[in-house]
Amino acid sequence: MPPRVSDVMTVEPLTLPLDATLYEAARIMRDEGIGDVLVTYAGRLCGVITDRDIVVRAVAESRDTSLTPLGDVCTAELTTVRPYDDTGTAARLMSEQAVRRLPVVDDEQRPVGIICIGDLAMADGQVGPLSEISKAPPNN
């Protein structure tokens, strides 16, 4: 039986409210060595913003990152998993949706974790480049 999402996810993902700015998200990503931040409204997940989103949807469009709220740029249509789902479900959803990470939410849609493709590689005990890259420290 595959492990549960809760066994391999990153707990306590970094979040920002919908009205936070792109600048705030970029600083958190830099300071924490991560590529995404979950976006919330009233504590519930409503989007995700990635470093690529900031570049492609904001900087390349000449938006002012210190004034543009996350709600203007973040991805709002999300596929999520629950902590009690198995990792096979997470892998299937990542494949079907062509995404590399999935927010993990509780039954009230509050973010409790995030699981990425590297987490799945390590959970399956895979040997190879993906699991090795996933074990490496962040490249800041």
Rank of each mutant, 00 (worst) to 15 (best):
T50S: 13
D119E: 05
M94D: 14
P137G: 07
D119S: 08
P2E: 08
T40P: 06
V105S: 07
E96Q: 09
A98K: 12
E132V: 05
T68Y: 00
R44S: 14
C74G: 10
D64V: 00
T40Y: 14
N139T: 15
D72R: 00
T15L: 13
P138N: 13
A42R: 15
E24N: 05
G125H: 12
I34H: 12
R63H: 13
I114G: 07
M94F: 11
G113M: 03
S66G: 07
L102T: 03
I133S: 11
L120S: 02
V104E: 00
I115V: 15
P103C: 03
D36H: 09
S131N: 14
A42W: 11
R100C: 12
N140Q: 01
D64L: 08
G35Q: 04
D19L: 05
E132M: 06
T40F: 10
D85R: 00
P69K: 12
A90V: 04
L67N: 09
V99L: 02
V105P: 01
R101K: 15
P138Y: 10
R63N: 03
T89K: 11
L67C: 06
A121R: 12
T15G: 08
L45S: 01
L14F: 11
R63D: 03
G43N: 06
L18N: 05
A25N: 03
G43F: 04
E77I: 15
L70S: 08
L45Q: 03
L38D: 13
V127C: 04
D53V: 08
C46P: 01
I54K: 03
R92I: 07
V112R: 05
T40V: 15
P13K: 02
V105I: 12
G47N: 06
R4S: 11
R44W: 01
A26C: 09
T79R: 01
Y23D: 13
P13D: 06
L14W: 10
G43D: 03
T50E: 02
M94K: 14
R101M: 06
Q126V: 11
E12D: 15
L67V: 06
S134I: 00
D51H: 10
S66T: 11
D85G: 00
A121Q: 03
T80D: 03
Q126S: 12
P111K: 09
M9D: 04
P83I: 11
T21A: 07
M29A: 11
A76C: 04
G88K: 11
